[in-house]
């Protein structure tokens, strides 16, 4: 099953992917992004198999992993601006947060939009073939939203080691088979996964020097998160066609 564009004939890369990969992996889907870069959507269980094919097949030969990252699709496509009931008081007027932060009591009932994506967390790989000068993106939605687990690719691409540690640190995605899954970017002893959408921008704790105790202490954060510019979604032709075509 593939989502080929209606008009354009398949590029050599799409053809090779179709022949070499999709023919043997019926669960993998092929799509493409705005710049015609192919996107493979693959179940996590097959991620290692698929990347082995992508790396070792002579027609594909994606010998380099350029990037691996986690994505949190929570509240995708939700606007925060409720213009029709904007108040004239307070700093964040008209803003209704689409996300209730972890551990927070929801203040306003948020009407959840129909989810655009099947799962909350995904792992996205960018592969590069130096031989053929091709790029491909592989995306895998992880089954459990509460405890996302993905297979580790360290056996296929050695450089995925730190990328996986980063995705674990920032998104809490566990990579099964990674032998050194420590935090990498956040502080020693950090709690939580800061890039999740329900982690507040200003965090939970702050650090200051306590002159009485004569050491650095952690305390609950004292600044209040505020929205300076509301998140607003406009249709593509918003404001009329004038000026839109330069």
């Amino acid at each position: 099953m593939s989502e080929q564009p209606e008009s354009a004939p398949p590029s050599p890369l799409q053809y090779a992917l179709q022949e070499r990969l999709l023919a043997h992996h019926p669960d993998v889907q092929l799509g493409q992004d705005q710049t015609a870069c192919p996107i493979l959507t693959c179940p996590p269980a097959q991620l290692v198999d698929v990347s082995l094919v992508l790396r070792d097949d002579q027609e594909l030969h994606f010998e380099q992993l350029v990037d691996l990252c986690g994505v949190d699709y929570m509240a995708y496509g939700q606007s925060e601006w409720v213009t029709h009931q904007a108040t004239d008081s307070g700093f964040s007027r008209g803003v209704r947060r689409a996300i209730t932060m972890a551990g927070e009591v929801p203040t306003t009932p948020v009407v959840a939009a129909a989810p655009r994506w099947p799962r909350r967390f995904a792992v996205v790989l960018h592969l590069l073939s130096v031989r053929h000068n091709w790029r491909v993106r592989v995306r895998s939605f992880l089954d459990d939203d509460a405890f996302p687990v993905a297979p580790s690719l360290t056996s296929v691409y050695p450089c995925s080691d730190w990328f996986e540690r980063e995705a674990f640190d920032l998104y809490g995605i566990c990579f099964q088979g990674h032998d050194d899954l420590r935090r990498i970017l956040t502080d020693y002893g950090f709690i939580g996964h800061p890039f999740r959408k329900d982690f507040p921008l200003s965090g939970y704790v702050e650090v200051r020097y306590d002159p009485d105790k004569e050491r650095v202490v952690y305390q609950p954060v004292t600044i209040e998160p505020r929205t300076t510019v509301a998140r607003v979604i406009r249709p593509v032709d918003h404001g009329g066609p004038e000026g839109a075509g330069s």
């Binding site: 994505v71 949190d72 995708y76 606007s79 655009r116 998140r231 979604i233 249709p235």
Partner: peptide, 13 residues
Amino acid sequence: SDGANKPFRVKIR
């Protein structure tokens, strides 16, 4: 981008 005035996710490589 999810169509908003802010990026949905920016990953820097």
